[in-house]
């Protein structure tokens, strides 16, 4: 039987186009367009690389308003076989707990999922909680922060990149893997697949379709609440101007103060 891979994606504002207003020191998003979260493109590519080698079906899935549809189409144009949009007004304002719960419920509905791919984090909220949260809800093994994933006989082998080294782990399916940003080169869409995608269309599920009561999700069922936006803490330093010819003096002072050490400790 074909392996069933699910790739979780999120549509986020394009960080490169968001800029900070130098006068007001606030974020100007007016120019921002949307993109697929960068790590999720790598997650899709990691799934596609498994499909290159064996019989596999890839479902891309996102919980989002309908504006996410073209991005799901883009994923199919790169090689995903089907796309699921979980769209329901009730999910608005969900934090990572209800998001993980909803995504997990949709995965359960599919029933036969072998590996779930998620990004290590999103570039807009950047929590990285959803992948591990989904693993917890569906009771799957988890390999987070992976840069390379292979599948063999019911097991996923993943290279986890940690702060101090690379760990190779082997976990049985069903498994959740979260994929590092920039860990591979996402392939481009092809015209042929794009035409196929348009024929197939997108599957849309509401909360009722995945048996999640509306009062389990959304702002009111999210444990965390954003209280207020505060200005970025600014440490004002003395910004003493130093002319080029005063650099020797500055160095002497820093050596005296122990900030610069001339001998190795």
């Amino acid at each position: 039987m074909a392996l069933h891979l699910v790739v979780l994606i999120k549509v986020v504002p394009d960080g490169k186009e968001v800029f900070v207003d130098p006068v007001t020191f606030t974020l100007n998003r007016s120019m921002a367009t949307n993109i697929i979260n960068p790590a999720d493109e790598n997650a899709l590519e990691a799934a596609l690389q498994i499909k290159d080698k064996m019989d596999a079906k890839i479902t891309v899935m996102t919980m989002a308003p309908p504006f996410a549809e073209p991005f799901l189409m883009e994923c199919m144009s790169r090689g995903a076989d089907e796309a699921v949009l979980i769209s329901d007004r009730a999910v608005a304002g969900s934090d990572t707990y209800p998001t993980s719960l909803t995504v997990a419920a949709a995965i359960r509905k599919m029933g036969d999922v072998d590996i779930v791919f998620a990004g290590e984090k999103t570039s807009d909220s950047s929590t990285g909680h959803v992948g591990p949260g989904v693993a917890e809800f569906i009771g799957a093994e988890l390999a987070s922060y992976s840069r390379k994933v292979t599948y063999e006989d019911g097991y996923v082998i993943a290279e986890r990149e940690l702060e101090n080294g690379v760990e190779e782990v082997r976990i049985p399916t069903p498994a959740v893997v979260t994929i590092l940003t920039d860990s591979n080169d996402p392939r481009r869409a092809t015209l042929r697949k794009k035409i196929d995608a348009m024929k197939k269309g997108i599957i849309t599920w509401s909360l009722a379709d995945i048996n999640i009561p509306a009062d389990w999700v959304g702002l009111r069922s999210s444990p965390t609440v954003v209280k207020k936006m505060l200005p970025f803490p600014r440490k004002d330093r003395k910004a003493e101007k130093i002319e080029k010819d005063k650099i020797p003096e500055l160095i002497d002072n820093l050596v005296k103060a122990g900030v610069i050490k001339l001998e190795a400790e």
Binding site: G15, L27, P223, V225, L230, P231
Partner: peptide
């Protein structure tokens, strides 16, 4: 408190219940 997207502001996040 955590930096927001783009980091020019910070959000205060609470988990009251």
């Amino acid at each position: 408190r955590r930096p927001d997207y783009g980091d020019s502001t910070m959000s205060e996040i609470r988990c009251e219940k």
